[in-house]
Design a protein around this nucleic acid. Sequence first.
DNA 1: CTCCCGATAT
DNA 2: ATATCAGGAG
Length: 216
Amino acid sequence: MPTSTQNVQTILNNLKQAYPNAKYELDWETPLQLLVATILAAQCTDERVNKVTKTLFPKYPTAQAYAEVDILELEEDLKPTGFYRNKAKTVKSMCQDLVERYGGEVPKTMDELVTLPGVARKTANVVLNTAFNMPSGIIVDTHVARVSQRMGLTKRKTPETIEQELMLLVPQEEWTFWGPAVVLHGRYTCTAKKPKCSECVLKNVCEKIGVTTTDN
DNA sequence: CTCCCGATAT
DNA sequence: ATATCAGGAG
């Protein structure tokens, strides 16, 4: 058995012990809500997104509602999440697309999702993994990318190529667990600045590539 | 590669 | 002051 495969098993075991119920922390009830929340989550904490969507979701119950809103009003609604002009434009045009091409429903395939404005593989994987329980791929956000590189699981730089390598290493039945678990690990332990290596459950199989500051 | 946006951590 | 934050488009 290759070393990397052995490491992946160890990583999985330790992650499951540390984050047994790992799941995405964005608040949502419908696929459309999760899709919108994930777009708003770009360069913004989930906590802030949840605060905004608490009032946003009741105001816009359907894709049609976003599609018809005045762009300036939507910009105001999304302002606290940052990148608000881009996000308002993206959400509105994406929902227009949903209404025109998919009857207002969120499509359930990767090929269809990534044709929507503002949706690439990361956002599509979040929706497919979380809302539709489909192992379409592995969520690779800034956290998963950073942790994977530090662990020595990949030397690639772009989310797409990192995802490709991870999909070869991680068994498919673990894909939907891997993403949320590694995101949590990256957010709270393997942080971008000053990672907490001394309390890391993966320290024994981590190569600490590019880690310059540790707490021990 | 840059740009979009603003709050927070360091 | 600067890096970073559940990214994606041009």
